[in-house]
């Protein structure tokens, strides 16, 4: 069991290292002439509202739902029609949640 995860334990840090290496290399190879103007952030006075968190909330609902659905999907072969319909009921409740968010206007981009 843990054997299978060994590969992942290796590949993730390796990938991080391999991708980080060129950045380190360019820090070494590239010039280093900083001045306050160059290091200043690129911007001008712009105002904006952040209303993206509604999407984040709807997303969390659906993602957690999906986590609950995966065991159902794995056991699908062994389920009777009744159990499958119970899963369908679960999805229907979530679809009702989507309809609610939709009617509330939470899915409109503002």
């Amino acid at each position: 069991m843990s054997d299978q995860w060994l590969f992942i334990a290796f590949i993730l840090p390796l990938a991080l290292f391999m991708a980080g290496m060129p950045i380190g290399m360019s820090r070494m190879l590239g010039p280093r002439k900083s001045n306050p103007m160059k290091d200043a952030a690129y911007e001008c006075g712009v105002q904006f509202k952040v209303q993206y968190y509604i999407f984040a909330l709807v997303f969390v609902v659906f993602d957690v739902e999906a986590v609950f659905l995966f065991p159902w999907a794995v056991a699908y072969d062994r389920l009777q029609l009744f159990a499958v319909l119970e899963g369908v009921l679960f999805i229907a409740i979530l679809a009702a949640g989507l309809v609610y968010a939709w009617r509330k206007g939470n899915l409109e981009w503002v």
Binding site: I11, I23, S26, G30, D39, A40
Partner: peptide
């Protein structure tokens, strides 16, 4: 590789440097 790596003033250095390799890691993973 031969260009300067510019870190803007007030940047969160560690996170600033870790973000690009993290992008690659998520795909290679």
């Amino acid at each position: 590789l031969t260009k300067e790596v510019i870190v803007p003033v007030g940047a969160d250095k560690l996170i600033y440097y870790i973000a690009p390799p993290l992008t690659v890691m998520s795909v290679v993973g």
